[in-house]
Design a protein around this nucleic acid. Sequence first.
RNA 1: GGGUGAUUAGCUCAGUUGGUAGAGCGCUUCCUUUACACGGAAGAUGUCGGGAGUUCGAGCCUCUCAUCACCCA
Length: 1023
Amino acid sequence: MAMEKTFNASEAEARIYEMWEESGAFKAGANASREETFCIMLPPPNVTGSLHVGHAFNHTIMDMLTRWKRMQGYDTLWQPGLDHAGIATQLMVEKDLAETQQPKRTELGREKFLEKVWEWKAAKGGTIEQQARRLGDSMDWSRSAFTMSGAESAPEGEKPGNFHDAVLKVFVKMYNDGLIYRGKRLVNWDPHFETAISDLEVENIEVDGHMWHFKYPLAGGETYEYVEKDEDGNVTLRETRDYISIATTRPETMLGDGAVAVHKDDERYAPIVGKLCEIPVGPKDQRRLIPIITDPYPDMDFGSGAVKITGAHDFNDYEVAKRGGIPMYNLMDTKGAMRADGKPYVEEAATAQAIANGEQDFDEAMIAAMNMVPEEYRGLDRFEARKRVVADITAEGNAVMTTQMVKDDEGEEVETTVPYVEAKKIMQPFGDRSKVVIEPMLTDQWFVDTAQIVGPALDAVKEGRTKIMPESGEKVYYHWLENIEPWCISRQLWWGHQIPVWYGPSKSNDLLLSDDNLSELNFEKRKAFCAEDKAAAETLASEYYGSAFAVSAIDSDSFVANTGQRKEAHPIGVAAGLTGDKQRIVISRDPDVLDTWFSSGLWPFGTLGWPAEDEAMKYFPGDVLVTGQDILFFWVARMMMMSQAVLEQDPFHTVYLHQLVRDAKGEKMSKTKGNVIDPLDMIDAYGADALRFSNAQMAALGGVLKISEDRIKGYRNFGTKLWNAFSFAEHYEIAYPGDAVRPKATQTLNKWIIGETGKVRETVDAAMEAYRFNDAADALYAFTWGKVCDWYLEFSKPILQGDDAAAKAETEQTLRWVLDQCLILLHPIMPFITEELWGLAANRAKMLVHADWPTYTASELVDADADREMNWVIDLIDNVRSARAQVHVPAGAKVPLLVSGLDAKGQSAWDNNHVLIQRLARIESLAHVDDFPKGCVTIPMSGGTFGIPLADLIDVAEEIARLEKTMQKLGKELGGLRGRLNNPKFVASAPDEVVAEAKANLALRENEEAQLKAAIARLEEIG
RNA sequence: GGGUGAUUAGCUCAGUUGGUAGAGCGCUUCCUUUACACGGAAGAUGUCGGGAGUUCGAGCCUCUCAUCACCCA
């Protein structure tokens, strides 16, 4: 059957992929011939995800590595899987419910909603795994993992798995080891999803904002001399003030102020430090007074230098408030509206005043319960409240005023006073999923005490156990880990791993309870029981309360309350006994789920069956992690911390980081810009191999990744070139004896290409080992196209068409072998077309995907004489062609060639290869002459000078110009060489081989120069 | 404001311990020659962002300035 004209990618790729998958070619351990394992964990895409160029890029890298190692006989696993992606998935399903007019999440309730999520996952999740197959990914699909597998909510029929076990086991272990705790801290709160989110899920975006300036009047109408000075100490302003001026971008938070802070060195405010001032908002009769304190935080040169401290709604203020013991009043509910719960404002304000005056003790819980929002603002959205607060303060005359020129009714410019409001760019935090403004909120959350587990993860990199590539990633890694914050791991969502903690009442002493000392139970203060399941939690609780009571653990569904406070776990309590006559203590489960990244942090071993004993654990620790540098902190650092915390091992020895994939102009791809390149479109148009080759080629370490359709197209052409090399073989009816064997070559030509193959194999392996995939791709491109196709195939033609049967047989065998090597070496990058071409031969021992990767070396295969000779031949052909073109010899015309002073080596090179030279340079004959005739094109070569007599054809002036141009180039080079060699310091200080090389080079160039000079002289005689 | 990286041919980018610059695409000219026009042959284009320093020698090392990008505040 004759080969098609080109490779039909769309037809062949599907067929070949199916062949691989059905034969189990990608299964863990397939083709293994040695003990060593090689394992890559796929960064699990979101279950909601679809394949984009970033995936296409890093999948190419991972697949190249995996296929390469598999061909080398390693026990290989590329582990696939999906991430349940808490927020993203919950959002997607909620949207879906809305679009299909189904009840909302909150109407469904937790259990029903989770059923919907699983249904959605079964129907629509994981399309990315199908798309990945189109790229040719050689993952072991039979092992595909899911970060929620084995969860209580998973329905029947869901693929089995035990990732949930791993998550719970790790949580309980870390809890018991004191690495996880619950506490009230300021966290990033997403008012849309009504959940805490991590620092990393917040995007800070610069937006247009305003800076308002307000007067906080001093208590009791007190006054002070306010003095401003310039840099030289000259007084620029002096006035008597009865207020302190405060600048803020968030006036609505004034209601929760606990203090005003100034810098201790700020002389302007020194007279009033320690006094009280009034928050100028809220009912006039209950204005709260707050202290003026000093703190290092305020910047004297920014705004007025005085800062209001709202500990519950700003991260900087939070630190100040903690330092100063300032109460932090939470003003907002979970939706970001002003709180509407609690006691009337009059009462709350009175309590707050007592606290500010130091007349009343307070604790965290008490402050949390207080609602400092006056009735007129309660229930308002935070942005509406802002407008109202600004309007109210301004109306009352407490806005700082400034002058401005405006046009009056007659169009005259007049000066008028207006409130001082600066229009200003401010950095505002947005939720990366919800796109709403994030509110710092003081809530109870679970945290991993990262400071305790960060050490081994830092050491892994510092001590070189884990290498980050490119190296610049290491600095970034250190910087982040050395300044790591506690990791908030609880999320107020439903889709995720529910926190395995149950709460019950605490006891006021250590004694076990008996049924008559129930009063020892404190329902206000909760006792947490952390266990892997309900039964274990009950056991823990029984041990705590004593055998006089039965304990029953329940799930708690939504935790109502619009208090602005984190929803409380309830109910807890004592119920009439159902079993015998014992009373029951009810403990209920924490409703929150874990941050998605908590479970993905366990990916390196959770996918391998852990905590069960599983043979697959032999693949842990894995080898290389390939991922975008944007998730270095999100995920990579956490895997490293968690692997150490749980298994005391590093999860991998190398981290390969790459940048975001951009469009050809280097811009981020976005739907709004319309510059999104869909990798599947590229595959449809040019085939997966072309896309993969393009990916490999742009994979320079640390490089910017710009994907360009032209480039992909170019590599499609490369595939066609390779294809045509095989149709060349078919055309010459070269037999294909199954796996080609390397011949013991006698022909210079064959020796040469075999040596070149040895060189490229070494280059490719070295590049792959160094993760320099672009070098591997470039080397293979240059070899296949530039050496094999451009020269070897052309050179082989005369032999293949000739009469020397032995030479012909040897060349055929060499050609087959060389082409096979191209297929093997290119296979990790271009798996489809190479497998297809491999299949042209019957009687293959194995599919190409399992073919043996070669180990021959350049030193084994390179024949120095053959190498020199063929390069001389190529050089001569190049020179003749170039000369011909420049003096306009018709391309088809055959010309005679003259040579003068040819040495023995040159003669032998000519004799061995004249057929090739004559064919490729279109030479009719060679004649030895002592002197070139007039009107002759000169070609200087090492070992002799060649000439083409063109008496009538030649344009003397043009030929002189050509030679002089060559002379110029040569002159530049000679100048450099002579300059260096004449410099005694160079000869003295440069390494010997560099000097020797320069000398040899100089001799060569001088020889050329002499030939050229002679040629020009001859021409000038005619001219 | 802090950090990281970039600045090399018209475009997109390589350039591994410092030894005198490369690829692909594009462009110009020629060629439909029995593997391939998704091809072949030939060719042009670079004070390697500016400046200074170290060195016999700098695209590469050091300092500085400029512009851009990304990450973190």
